[in-house]
């Protein structure tokens, strides 16, 4: 049975259900378990739910150590930028233990953090900084765009034996959607085709998935059929689903809230250029944030971010060009 709940409630439900299922799952962080009335403390007790000081290195390092010792900690890191305070622990410790021990130990932990809060939080709390994590070996990265995926990806993240960075988009916090009750798992590395189409493939993540869908609706009125794909996890990244779609549509537009040169879109563009060149009937178009921090003042904030109009314009650029098939097939 599904019912409508918010994105953030879905995430917390995912954590709650996994904590009920497996007593090794812990929840720690600066904004959890601060009082006895906290629902997680009430349900699971202070052994498994603990508020921490503002000590990011210790929080994440302790999660790694507890994981090595058999626990499965979830660390609520609040905002993605706070991970940067503890960068060594995020990208150079837990993710390497399994490998460097030749498989003798595992470090199953989840780092939950919000990102992309482009609502006047200025340059240190608004970034879409997953680009600096997605290429780190041993670290998985999930970017849910819907409440159902948020719950399902969280549950999968907790059950995964590896460190997982679970990045939830702040602008989606109170968005609602149908979420299955009970156990709900969304596999990693499996993109979702959230709207089928035939003319253009549009790939987007997080909050931009919804902007891409709005753009697709607008373009449909003009007779352009857009297929919208959400990778859902960017490490592992499901390139195959994108390649298969491009094979059908011949056109690829990539939307990303990250700065252009640290984006998922740049990686997908490179993969498709290498493995899907013969399918392309137009140059790949990237609609990303500009390579700038996020300014405080709203007009400037809007200026650097992708929006529906920019996506529509990007799709039009892609459909306005048709390369001769001969050029592409020559390299097959």
């Amino acid at each position: 049975m599904a019912r409508e709940i918010t994105y953030i409630a879905a995430i917390m439900e995912g954590i709650h259900q996994e904590m009920s299922r497996d007593e090794d799952v812990l929840l720690i962080g600066q904004s959890v378990g601060g009082s006895p009335e906290d629902p997680f403390v009430a349900a699971f007790g202070p052994d498994r739910v603990r508020v921490t000081p503002i000590s990011e290195t210790a929080e994440i390092g302790m999660a790694a150590g507890a994981a090595l010792a058999g626990k499965r900690p979830v660390v609520d890191c609040t905002m993605a930028e706070f991970l940067l305070v503890a960068m060594d622990q995020v990208v150079n410790e837990a993710n390497r233990f399994h490998y460097m021990s030749g498989g003798r130990v595992t470090a199953p932990l989840v780092l939950k953090a919000g990102y992309g809060f482009t609502a006047g939080w200025a340059g240190q709390h608004t970034g879409s900084i997953y680009g600096m994590f997605m290429g780190v070996p041993g670290l998985k990265v999930a970017l849910p765009s819907t409440p159902a995926d948020a719950k399902g990806l969280m549950a999968t993240a907790i059950r995964d034996d590896n460190p997982v960075l679970f990045l939830h988009h702040y602008l989606l916090t109170l968005e609602t959607g149908d979420v299955p009750e009970g156990e709900h798992l969304v596999p990693f590395g499996q993109a979702a085709i959230v709207r089928p189409g035939t003319d253009v493939t549009l790939v987007a993540t997080g909050w931009t998935v919804h902007r891409a869908l709005e753009a697709a609706e607008e373009l449909a009125a003009d007779g352009v059929s857009v297929e919208v794909i959400d990778p859902r996890t960017i490490a592992p990244l499901d390139v195959d689903t994108v390649l298969a779609s491009v094979e059908r549509t011949g056109r690829l537009v990539l939307v990303d809230q990250a700065t252009r040169h640290a984006s998922v879109s740049a990686i997908i563009a490179a993969e498709v250029a290498e493995a899907g060149f013969a399918s392309l009937r137009a140059p790949i178009v990237q609609v990303t944030a500009l390579d700038a921090p996020i300014a405080y003042s709203k007009p400037m904030e809007d200026f650097v971010l992708p929006d529906v109009a920019k996506i529509v314009a990007g799709v039009r650029r892609a459909v306005d060009v048709t390369l001769p098939h001969d050029a592409a097939t020559a390299v097959r």
Binding site: G61, M62, G65, A66, A69, D88, N92
Partner: peptide, 19 residues
């Protein structure tokens, strides 16, 4: 990396405490 195993050991001690 210098110092970085200290929080990890502390986390292992947290696991030991609740075990």
């Amino acid at each position: 990396i210098v110092g970085q195993s200290i929080p990890q050991a502390t986390g292992a001690a947290y696991a030991a405490q609740i075990r």
